[in-house]
């Protein structure tokens, strides 16, 4: 049961994680680094509340052994701007367009939206729905979330 040290970049900073075999990235983020924006809704890859970016691609951190991210770049919601005056346009749009209710899905929704808008700055409504389909929201009925991503895309394109 020897623990290993795993080196990776977390929100732009090099970090060392101490991992027992098969410990998930989610557990390391939440328990070791206390980055609790990454949620733990199911540990089944079924809800998307634990979505973070690894090398700019969204993944379910509950399913990924942290040893797999050795040498890679991990970004969580804490890696976005962290003040009310300097919100990322996606955060601002989620807040202003009521895309948050209980808030539990919000970190995952925001992170996967960030990946989408970086890869596809002007997504169609269909492309937004397709990107978000693995992230569950039980409160909003999704419509405000889709509209927030559309709004964020407009703002990020200077609109």
């Amino acid at each position: 049961m020897a623990s290993k040290i795993v080196n990776f970049t977390l929100n732009g900073r090099p970090v060392e994680a101490m991992s027992k075999p098969l410990t998930t990235l989610q557990a390391i983020l939440r328990e070791q680094f206390k980055y609790t924006a990454t949620k733990s809704g199911c540990k089944q890859g079924g809800c998307g509340s634990c979505t973070v970016l690894v090398n700019d691609e969204p993944i379910m951190s509950c399913l990924l052994p942290v040893e797999n991210v050795e040498g890679q770049e991990v970004v969580t919601l804490e890696g976005l701007l962290q003040s009310e005056d300097g919100l990322h346009p996606i955060q601002a749009a989620f807040f202003e367009r009521f895309a948050v209710q209980c808030g539990y899905c919000s970190p995952g929704m925001i992170m996967i939206s960030k990946a989408l808008l970086e890869q596809n700055p002007q997504p169609s409504r269909e492309e937004i729905v397709d990107a978000l389909t693995g992230n569950f929201c039980r409160c909003t009925g999704y419509e405000p979330i889709i509209q927030a991503v559309e709004e964020a895309a407009r703002r990020m394109n200077g609109g």
Binding site: T36, E78, Q82, E84, Q91, A92, F94, F95, F98, G103
Partner: peptide, 15 residues
């Protein structure tokens, strides 16, 4: 605007 919304989008709401 929601009173708790800012915490939600910043990931600072404590569950």
């Amino acid at each position: 605007l929601r009173r708790d919304g800012m915490g939600h989008v910043l990931g600072k709401t404590t569950y």
